[in-house]
Write a protein that binds this DNA or RNA. Sequence first.
DNA 1: TGGAATAATAAGGTTTACCATAACATTTTA
DNA 2: TAAAATGTTATGGTAAACCTTATTATTCCA
Lengths: 216, 216
Amino acid sequence: MSQLSESTEMYLKAMVELGLNEIVSISRLAERLGVTPVSANEMVRRLGDQGLLTHTPYKGVALTKKGREAACNVVRRQRLWEVFLYEHLHIEWAKLYELACSLEHATAPELTEALATFLGDPKFCPRGNPIPAVDGSFLPLNGKTLSATQVGETLKVLAVNATATDVLKYLQERNVLPGRELTVLEAAPLQGPLTLKVGDKDVALGLSLAEFVIVK
Amino acid sequence: MSQLSESTEMYLKAMVELGLNEIVSISRLAERLGVTPVSANEMVRRLGDQGLLTHTPYKGVALTKKGREAACNVVRRQRLWEVFLYEHLHIEWAKLYELACSLEHATAPELTEALATFLGDPKFCPRGNPIPAVDGSFLPLNGKTLSATQVGETLKVLAVNATATDVLKYLQERNVLPGRELTVLEAAPLQGPLTLKVGDKDVALGLSLAEFVIVK
DNA sequence: TGGAATAATAAGGTTTACCATAACATTTTA
DNA sequence: TAAAATGTTATGGTAAACCTTATTATTCCA
């Protein structure tokens, strides 16, 4: 199993975050990674050459079996570090992803497993997302995105799927965090924002933000 | 203060490991870093442009004040991670440097200080080397290299200054580790190896290896 | 003091992962 | 079904940090 480059790991991670079994368009992938579609196209070809994913022109990109395994491994490292940073170093919730991301790239397999043991083999990261086991399996989240809910529903936040620090900060400041309850008060028309009741505060949340929030 | 590249950090670290106030020849630097002297020359010019070190042609390289500060910071991160890996993840002693090295490059300042606090602000790494404080100060080792000792002396190992995993493994297997006592039984002529008594075993140690061992 | 060893510089090459611009292909939608 | 939107490919360019080979400069030592 060859070593993956940092960039490769980012692409794999993005594929998991956009849905492990989804077919993802190159433009969506590019947007998530903050690169141009042309660059993403190039890179996808390279990952394809390595057998990590398949690209059907004009349709999108999907992970292969090999890619899915590699990706779960990367995500495992990422989320284990998030747990360590949160629980032991008391790093601010919104910064966890970014800081753990750098460490992830620098983590040898033997280190990953030692870390997992140290942490007590946690099953979820502080953002509420499952941590894949060594074999790639993980506990699924039985939820839906907040953007797909009805007005009036009271829901519990299961996980936040965002990664950008500013997005996470926004949610943190409004208490849209795993474990919290919220009620959907209103959905503005024409793809407008949702109005939520979180605790005793009203929170306005754009639909694209609401897609990052998994609730039940 | 701009972010330093991984390569820059390696050069700075090497400068500290070869002696914080020494003038180091480019070839020695190149050897330590496993690059050709031509490459080291190029890179030294770049670090010189950044004001991190000064190069006197045909003499050698020295850290500037700015370079020394940056270097101590890098070394601080490196050695804090070594402590974490050793004490909490129980990683094998000989592998600490290499594994901590990767993590070091990926560590933001806020992370470094959170880690230091978590570890209880340790003053020495598991190889016995001092951990610089935030301000760059550190407790000096009042020792000498094992290669500069007399036959018959009984000494205590203060630190091991090596970084290559195979060198560290060699020393680990022979119990030449910080805290251990040893006696110099013999020094072979013509730069030949030392024979040591470590515990109840005799150990042969080449002079260049002995230079990595700081004793008192 | 002259030759060997060491050091520096010059020139050109490699890889990875991006970028921009432009041209062309396909799909969507109006 | 045609135009707009989206996706793909081609071409050429950048930066960092290495590499090799060759030439030139300096220092060391006998």
